[in-house]
Write a protein that binds this DNA or RNA. Structure first.
Lengths: 141, 141
DNA sequence: CTAGGTGCTGGAGCGCACTCCAGGTCAAGC
DNA sequence: GCTTGACCTGGAGTGCGCTCCAGCACCTAG
């Protein structure tokens, strides 16, 4: 499979695929006689996995770290597992936060109660503070 | 309340607060005799709300749009409501996606089954593709 | 009177994750 | 033999969301 087809099949751009290779997210691709990248379909599995890591908010540098461990073979299985478990926990935490925000959003939307066509004449943009973190909590970096 | 205290109470940096003002996310602050920003505590409510929008992944330009509508007063209530409902749906969709990814992650972690100290000698980095989007679906932009 | 702390402005710089481009190679079809 | 199209490389550019900085103004405590 050449890069164009891989791009079509993954939804990534060719540029992005080459970029991922440069930074070590994708292994250096084999080349055909014309020195063009020639991919084995198994790359699709890896890209699908990368996409999940990305969707769940893992920064690229961490994915690269994972990819590097993977490239080193069996001996890094423990580290990879740890990395994934760590990430899973982060995702779970973010998910909880999102659920909470969604609830607040929903109640705020309820405050806007169908004002698209009905008459509501208070300003819905006035509700409880609750800054979560607050002072001396540097979740903000 | 001066900017330093606001920063402490919100967890934002003073630079970020001033930046938010520059781009229109925060209203132009009142000034005290020494031309320093002097905030009314009600700003805390607004910042808490902005933080939720941000946490739920709303890009700053959309928050600015919302802030601008809000500044225009009552007549924009309908538009603001629509904007929020739209965002809520996007958040919900993202949440669903995250849940799905988390499930896959969990099953992958299960594949790494406690290999931190036990012996597992297959490579867990081999599983089903499933590229989600696939061809001709540009969720990727 | 002066030193330190806090705040001001305008503008430059940064890290991330791409994205675009110029100029070139190669293979196939007309 | 020439054009077309897919692909190549190295490097520059982009948009986002801050973050940092120089140089200055003010206020308070010692």
């Amino acid at each position: 499979m050449k890069i164009g087809e891989l791009a079509r099949r993954t939804g990534l751009s060719m540029d992005t695929i080459r970029y991922y290779e440069r930074i070590g997210l994708l292994p250096r691709a084999d080349r055909n006689a014309a020195r063009q990248r020639d991919y084995d379909p198994s790359i699709l599995t890896w890209i699908a996995f990368l996409r999940r890591l990305k969707t769940t908010g893992m920064p690229i540098r961490d994915m690269v770290r994972y990819a590097a461990l993977r490239a080193q073979g069996e001996e890094t299985v423990a580290q990879r597992g740890a990395l994934l478990r760590h990430h899973r926990d982060a995702v779970q935490a973010h998910l909880d936060e999102l659920h909470a925000c969604l609830d607040v959003l929903d109640s705020k939307i309820a405050g806007y109660a169908g004002s698209t066509r009905e008459d509501v004449n208070h300003d819905p943009d006035d509700q409880s503070p609750n800054l979560g973190p607050g002072p001396a909590h540097d979740a903000e970096r």
